[in-house]
């Protein structure tokens, strides 16, 4: 770098308004949230929160295991005592609930956790991100290619594909909930019609196996227009001469796509993927409006759990603990990812 040509305080002057704003309205509340995690503060309470040490973290993160041998066998299948009865009756297991169970020989091992709903929500959120990010980016890319093909009316079509982004999520959710309805919804009617009645109606939002995929489809549909726009910009940034040259060399459309379009879009796609991932990890509204976290917790996300405990049950200390732990996990992932990328060279930030 060259010699410094400005006074040492200049950068601080330029940065001050934004940094003060971020410190006051982002960092400070976050620090407050961290402090809250060590208290038992509630939103409505006659007393200020008292210091409770790591209790919230213990309640959120403790895991254990329970190994059982069969009590007896019925019709060849081993029968075990009810886990809940054991955990609720034994002080050593106070506060623990079953998360999942597996068999080891004739023993049954039950993984216990003090807040299995949080761990389930963590898994659900990861699943959502893993499903929605590729789907939404692929959809967006397809749309971008389509509205960039120079067809008539493409401005109108861009607006149409973009329209779900600006629509009220509540209304979008109402319409989709109807589409997904088991008995009258369009989805099942279409499936039944296409399969000539072979496919039985699916209760999309009511079945633990299909609820999350349904949310994924709806979310990808809702957000793809936004990514389409950014990708469209990337497409237009690729030099037309490259395509012309390739065409002269006799490259097929597919070859042009693979060898020119995709490499040219690499940075844009990366950016879009990062933005989509951040949004996916914060999934809340769709779940809150469409499934309320159900059925049986299969669509509850981390933010849903944080709002449920922190806002609706008014246990703001516990809600803050969920947010802080989640934030720490994501930060860890970013730091690791950045480190790997730095070793490879390049990166978004």
């Amino acid at each position: 770098m060259g010699v410094r040509r400005h006074s040492p305080i200049a950068p601080w002057l330029f940065g001050a308004p934004a940094l003060i704003g971020l410190m006051l309205f982002l960092v400070l509340p976050f620090v407050m949230a961290v402090i809250l995690t060590f208290t038992d503060q509630r939103l409505v309470s006659p007393r200020p929160g008292a210091f409770v040490g790591l209790r919230n973290y213990q309640r959120l993160l403790s895991v254990g295991a329970l190994v059982q041998t069969p009590e007896r066998s019925a019709a060849g299948a081993p029968v075990y005592a009810r886990v809940r009865s054991i955990t609720r009756g034994n002080r050593a297991y106070a506060g623990y609930r079953p998360l999942t169970a597996f068999r080891l020989g004739n023993r049954r091992v039950t993984v216990l956790a003090t807040d299995p709903a949080f761990l389930q929500a963590l898994g659900n959120t990861m699943l959502f991100a893993v499903l929605v990010v590729p789907l939404q980016c692929a959809m967006a890319l397809g749309l971008a290619l389509l509205v960039n093909a120079g067809l008539r009316g493409q401005t109108l079509f861009r607006a149409i594909f973009f329209s779900p982004v600006v629509m009220s999520m509540v209304i979008v959710s109402v319409v989709w909930a109807f589409l997904f309805n088991k008995d009258l919804g369009l989805f099942n009617q279409a499936l039944g019609w296409i399969s000539l009645g072979a496919v039985r109606p699916v209760d999309w939002l009511g079945n633990p196996a299909t609820a999350m995929p349904a949310i994924v489809i709806m979310s990808a549909w809702q957000g793809a227009g936004f990514q389409m726009l950014i990708l469209l910009a990337g497409l237009q940034g690729i030099s037309q001469e490259l395509y012309d040259a390739a065409r002269l060399d006799g490259a097929s459309a597919w070859q042009r796509f693979v060898h020119i379009t995709l490499p040219g879009l690499r940075q844009t796609v990366l950016f879009v993927a990062v933005v989509t991932t951040i949004a996916a990890l914060g999934l809340f509204t769709q779940v809150d409006v469409m499934t309320g976290g159900g059925p049986r917790g299969t669509t509850a996300t981390v933010m849903f759990e944080a709002v449920r405990h922190g806002v609706r049950e008014e246990n703001i200390a516990y809600g803050a603990t969920i947010s802080v732990v989640y934030f720490a996990l994501i930060t860890l992932v970013i730091v690791v990812q950045q480190a790997i990328r730095r070793r490879r060279g390049g990166g978004v930030a």
Binding site: P208, G292, P295, R296, E313
Partner: peptide, 20 residues
């Protein structure tokens, strides 16, 4: 004063029951 938690806990439990 614990009513918000009571209402939430009962509702989540009944919705789980509904879902089997």
């Amino acid at each position: 004063p614990a009513f918000p938690t009571i209402a939430n806990a009962f509702t989540f439990a009944m919705r789980d029951v509904m879902d089997g």
